[in-house]
Design a protein around this nucleic acid. Structure first.
Length: 468
RNA sequence: UCCUCAGUAGCUCAGUUGGUUAGAGCAUUUGACUGUUAAUCAAAGGGUCCCUGGUUCAAGUCCAGGCUGGGGAGCCA
């Protein structure tokens, strides 16, 4: 087959490609459907560059019957043909095929993807093939855009991308159960004099785990470079079986020296709006598809979020609103409790109807590193609550006072020897600083309108599932 | 981990108070059709009714245990 310039389907469907009409070009991609009659075959080809497929028209008299027979749903083909304006209603251009090469067949009897819609549950079982569906193509393209937008947002603000370690020797944050990292033989581990496993003989000479957060290392970076962010995989060995939890997920954790809690909130709100706007600007075709197929209010919701000011109020004010609401909650509301999802949902979806930033939580329900307020009861935490998905960001101003931090570490029973390096940042040139954590998949959930977090990551890891 | 719902053809589902040979749509195969849009029309093939045990003359249907999946909750991002 003659070698011609290959164009992506996206390029050909763009209006600017009209100068290509009348010329012979090449496309390569996977066949979504083949229709036709005894003289023509219509082949919808998708190469993942865009949600739409391009229609290839083959006049059967110009092709071997045996070739056309191999062009089935799921097969991969290369097509040379002339780009022409389409007489059909559903597309502006199509390709009049001259030559078709079949790269890979897909046995119609066994290929699991059909022209018809599949349930998301079924597609999860064939995660190796689901990227070839319109839905997952859209989700994965949006996921890419969001990741890119995050880097662009921070880079444009002169933040530095800091690579926090994935293997960690500390469990200081206590953010959840951890995955052990070891090279010891599980059947015959070395034992010490006390009859316990001797981790001094392990690869790192100590117990190590996969990270549950890059924040503590992020702070080390911020207290040198001023503004940093991390963006990497995070692991939680919690036995969480919900549509909002993964054992392996990605998290963005900016950390800023000289930022107080208000600056932190401003940055977080600006960041979320920037990213969502980026998706609206760059992935509109995908969003339209998801809006049509899964969530009729998706685009409207995204637009409303970037237009409104997020509501800001304290935990104490939120508790008052909840108590006065007269709403029946399964969990009774009183000052000091951790807010349940029913409470958060009431505030965001019923009471305010827009994103809410809650601050100044009781210190007893928050992490040790959060800056203590003068009232002795609360800390400068901030959580951003979103409609549909709940908490999307959790952050705080950090405690920069050495004595207060050390006290809190003692109170919470954290071994000082594990965090000596963290404490050192408060001994030497400490500074007020703040940061937050943004769960990447929760963001992708919100932007795509998907309902289950397993559908916004290519290969989800959850309890009892590490297939693919 | 707890609560709850579900599991029947490749996919999505129906299947009556327990009763003859378990059905439909789509998909697949074959045929028809001169521009289709999830093409249309006709015919055919396709079943470990999740697994194990129990009740019964008789179980897809009832009971027990298990497995898998969905939803809700907790933990959290």
């Amino acid at each position: 087959m003659e070698k011609l310039i290959r164009y992506s389907v996206k390029k050909l469907l763009e209006a600017s490609s009209s100068q290509l009409v009348g010329t012979e070009i090449n496309i390569k991609g996977w066949v979504r459907t083949r229709r036709g009659n005894n003289t023509l075959a219509f082949i919808a080809v998708n190469d993942g560059s865009i949600v739409h497929s391009i229609q290839v028209v083959a006049e059967l008299e110009n092709f071997d019957e045996s070739t056309i027979k191999l062009v089935t749903t799921g097969s991969c083909i290369s097509v040379n043909g002339i780009l022409v304006e389409s007489p059909g209603k559903e597309q502006s251009v199509e390709i009049q095929a001259r030559h078709i090469e079949v790269y890979g067949t897909a046995d119609a009897e066994t290929f699991p993807l059909q022209k018809k819609g599949h349930t998301l549950e079924f597609l999860r079982e064939i995660a190796h093939l689901r990227p070839r569906t319109n839905t997952f193509g859209s989700v994965l393209r949006i996921r890419h855009s969001l990741a890119f937008a995050i880097h662009k947002f921070f880079n444009d603000k002169d933040f530095f991308y800091l690579h926090s370690p994935i293997i960690t020797g500390s469990d200081a944050e206590g953010a959840g159960a951890m995955f052990r990292v070891t090279t010891l033989d599980p059947h015959n581990p070395p034992m010490n004099a006390e009859g316990k496993i001797d981790f001094t003989q392990d690869f790192f000479g100590k117990e190590t785990n996969l990270t549950v957060s890059g924040q503590l290392e992020g702070e080390l970076g911020a207290l040198a470079l001023s503004n940093i962010y991390t963006f990497g995989p995070t692991f939680r060995a919690e036995n969480s079986n919900t549509p909002r939890h993964l054992a392996e997920f990605w998290m963005i954790e900016p950390e800023m020296a000289f930022y107080e809690i208000q600056d932190n909130m401003d940055l977080a709100e600006e960041c979320l709006k920037y990213i969502i706007r980026y998706a609206l600007d760059h992935n509109f075709a995908d969003l339209e598809f998801l809006n049509k197929m899964y969530d009729k209010e998706l685009i409207e919701r995204l637009q409303s979020v970037i237009e409104v000011d997020f509501i800001r109020l304290t935990y104490t004010e939120a508790v008052e609103i909840l108590i006065k609401s007269g709403q029946k909650f399964e969990f009774k509301v009183e000052w000091g409790i951790d807010l349940q999802s029913e409470h958060e949902r009431y505030l965001v979806e019923k009471h305010f109807g827009k994103p809410v930033i809650l601050t100044d939580y009781p210190r007893d329900i928050k992490a040790f590193y959060m800056k203590q307020n003068d009232d002795g009861k609360t800390v400068r935490a901030m959580d951003i609550l979103f409609p549909k998905i709940g908490e999307i960001i959790g952050g705080s101003q950090r405690e920069e006072n050495y004595d207060k931090l050390l006290n809190r570490i003692h109170e919470m029973g954290i071994p000082e020897k594990d965090v000596w390096w963290y404490l050192d940042t408060r001994r030497y040139g400490t500074a007020p600083h703040s940061g937050f954590g943004l769960g990447f998949e929760r963001l992708v959930l919100f932007v795509t309108g998907m309902a289950n977090i397993r559908d916004v990551i290519p290969f989800p890891r959850t309890p009892n599932n590490a297939e693919f």
